[in-house]
Design a protein around this nucleic acid. Structure first.
Lengths: 166, 166
DNA sequence: GTAATATATGTAGTTAACTACATATATTTG
DNA sequence: CAAATATATGTAGTTAACTACATATATTAC
């Protein structure tokens, strides 16, 4: 019979567990890039990959695309600009907007990275293709949170406890 | 037929995804404690819960138990000491050791929290009990990383690429 | 029983995301 | 078309973990 009981304290500490796993994977990712002699930080991936696929974007649309708060994107872009991997220009139609794109150097880097990605994808798939697939689980959880938030779900049970006034 | 294809860029950005989900859950957790009028931060959970279950521990054994680097534990303990939820005393046998335990206030808080935990556990279970159970997935991934690290797995593929010298 | 090593704790500084606030420009509304 | 509102970007400061280093005490080995 399948083991179906999850330690309750695990559920309570789920955000801690997620963060630890995230840190660990990020560190390993960095080591893999180093092994290939590529000067690249895993945290750059979402921004650079999006620009690689979509060529030119404003700061906010880029943030939305990768799911970051815009100040996080701005600070990444600052770093990437220093590395001369991206550049920006004003949007002539809407002058509030700053349009960001890869430089030649950025494009070159990204294309030399494709074989490394393949390795990372394979290794990640190997690690996550267990009975409960982590990547799918994340997608499913994000979907269920979108449908009804954690707090809203909790409120149903809080009402049933009926010892608290709202 | 089951959908089995995961976007490759998802795998590449997995640590980012994990971190974002962790942040989101932590914030929601804080809101739930607030809804119960309990002054409690989710990040305190691993330390306090462990002390609740095991009563007295040294800083390092506590860190090992919860899987944190010891400086992280020390800074949490500092906070908890300020909140008067824990106290510490010297180990008389091994004077290097600082033994940490819950105060009366800490014990009281933790026992008033049990019904809140039930709510959180139920809500978390609801969110994570999808086709691919997140908690189980985390456990499985941590187990597979323990067995063979990400980098070691990647090295196999790197050797096959055979364009890089080691 | 001293020297070398290991363990326990602590401090300082880093990281990679965040929120809150500020400002400039665009768009909408009366 | 001016005022009110919305959107885009930017800055400052926070958070919750980390690593690297320092120091004190204990244990092991000669």
């Amino acid at each position: 019979m399948e083991q179906n009981v999850i330690d309750a304290s695990g559920l309570l500490a789920i955000s801690t567990r997620l963060q630890r796993l995230s840190d660990q994977i990020r560190k390993d990712g960095l080591l893999i890039y180093k092994a290939f002699g590529i000067d690249f930080q895993p945290k750059w991936f979402p921004v650079l990959y999006t620009l690689y696929k979509k060529s030119t974007m404003s700061v906010v649309s880029l943030s939305d695309e990768i799911g970051y708060a815009h100040p996080s994107t701005i600070s990444l872009l600052k770093e990437l600009e220093k590395e001369k991997l991206i550049r920006s220009k004003k949007d002539k139609v809407d002058t509030r907007k700053r349009l960001v794109e890869l430089t030649e150097k950025g494009n070159t880097l990204l294309s030399t990275m494709e074989p490394v990605w393949e390795v990372i994808i394979k290794a990640t798939a190997e690690i996550t293709n267990t009975e409960n697939n982590l990547m799918k689980a994340i997608n499913e959880v994000e979907a269920s949170l979108q449908e009804k938030s954690f707090l809203q779900r909790a409120e149903v049970y809080i009402k049933n406890e009926s010892r608290i006034e709202f």
